[in-house]
Design a protein around this nucleic acid. Structure first.
Lengths: 238, 238
DNA sequence: TCGCGGATTTGGTATAGACCAAAACGCTCG
DNA sequence: CGAGCGTTTTGGTCTATACCAAATCCGCGA
């Protein structure tokens, strides 16, 4: 669409090269936007255009009003493997963390009634969690569990693997897993919980878990930072 | 991170509401940026900020120097189903199209040698295609095929399903399929072929196809517009 | 009617300046 | 040493303006 004679592309390439050359390492902060201006006569808007570019590429990310930082590498996620976040992040040599933001009992609404094949008003648990890797929040998730299948679930500690609690305490195993993924923009609620600017690109992962009887036991909406995740699927045909 | 008292959020909501209210329908062009200014005293930069927001959300897209258009709904892609682009797009009531941009024989380089387990210098075919839905280019792909397995492949018409050509002409069936997906930014080459602004967010899909003997028969890199695709996987556990 | 060419419109890039709120910093005081 | 509190820095938002090149539009002429 255009050649690299554009100024902001030049600035982008410059910063990218300095990152590639390890002048700035993953997690480190870049110089401030105004500091980057000092050398050559370039407007702050142009610097910012370059930074947005690198942000879209997943090379850098920002902390609000704090600065721009070099992105760590993404973790690999395989939706066909039946492994929880804690275990696959750890297996990749990273430090996973889960915080439960809220856990409450709610009444089944129209949408949930359809998904769970349960009557409207049936008790459900709604769990919101934030998960981090190496101290950086990478996703927030909103989980719905059928309360009749797992009574008292919210009394347990849910800062670890929910799957293993369902299995060990309630004997609920998952036989089928439906996963939808779609690039999206992080809206206000998600962005706030991830402490990022609203509108930043993300990846929405929606999972529906079924038990052996075909009942829906868990419905999970995850919103990931777009630079934190790589999806990998290995399929044997027929 | 902030409340909707920001001007550009207000403009965004306004445009989004008019789209939701069908004032503008999928594929239609929005008024020009300068026209949107006329009513209330708001700078063009602010209008553009709102448009970028909607673009990130996948609600609208742009044609260079032509205008902003309402996005059509995304197509659903299931990497575990062994169906080609042409068939699943058509099955969703959309009009798929494939153009072959180039097809040449190349020598196997280091990276390809490792992927295909073939000697460096071995003949390979390199096919570049652009695929569209309802007349809008949504992905460009770069395919590598082992020439020793499919001699003369590039003589065939490849504007349809490559899979079916491999199957019917060469008797090559795919037994295993490895798919990697990652949010990315479209770089200059891809962006140019898709006629979008370089740096726009996209989804990179990398597929490696193996035959029954475990040989790699096809290596495919796809770059999708981020708003054109929804990935759906349905897995039966063990 | 169709093709060509010039004028117009459009988004893309860039500058310069301004103000704000949150974050980070640094100092003082207990 | 630590907590609290101003000060400074930083990114976030917004205005106004300017120029460019590509896309589009429109009218003329074959």
């Amino acid at each position: 669409m255009q050649q690299p004679d554009l100024q902001y592309i030049g600035v982008r390439d410059d910063i990218a090269a300095r990152i590639a050359g390890s002048e700035f390492k993953p997690g480190e902060r870049l110089p401030s936007e105004r500091q980057m201006q000092i050398g050559g006569g370039v407007a702050r808007g142009t610097i910012r255009e370059a930074l947005f570019q690198l942000e879209a590429e997943g090379v850098i990310y920002r902390k609000d009003r704090s600065g721009w930082y070099v992105s760590p590498p993404p973790v690999v996620y395989d939706p066909t493997r039946w492994e929880g976040f804690m275990s696959y992040v750890e297996a990749q040599g990273r430090r996973p963390e889960t915080e439960t933001l809220s856990k409450v009992e709610i009444a089944c609404d129209d949408m949930l009634a359809q998904i769970f094949s349960r009557p409207v008003g049936a008790p459900m648990y709604w769990i919101r969690r934030r998960r981090s890797i190496d101290g950086r929040a990478v996703l927030i998730e909103s989980i719905i569990v059928d309360a009749s299948l797992a009574p008292g679930l919210v009394e347990h500690d849910l800062d670890g693997s929910l799957t293993s609690v369902l299995k060990s305490v309630y004997g609920i195993g998952v036989a089928r897993n439906k996963v939808d993924m779609q690039p999206c923009a992080l809206t206000r609620d998600e962005a706030e919980a991830l402490r990022v600017k609203s509108g930043l690109p993300g990846l929405s992962v929606i999972r529906t878990c079924y038990d052996a009887q075909g009942r829906v036991v868990e419905f999970d909406r995850e919103y990931w930072r777009h630079d934190a995740l790589k999806v990998s699927v290995d399929i044997r045909v027929r």
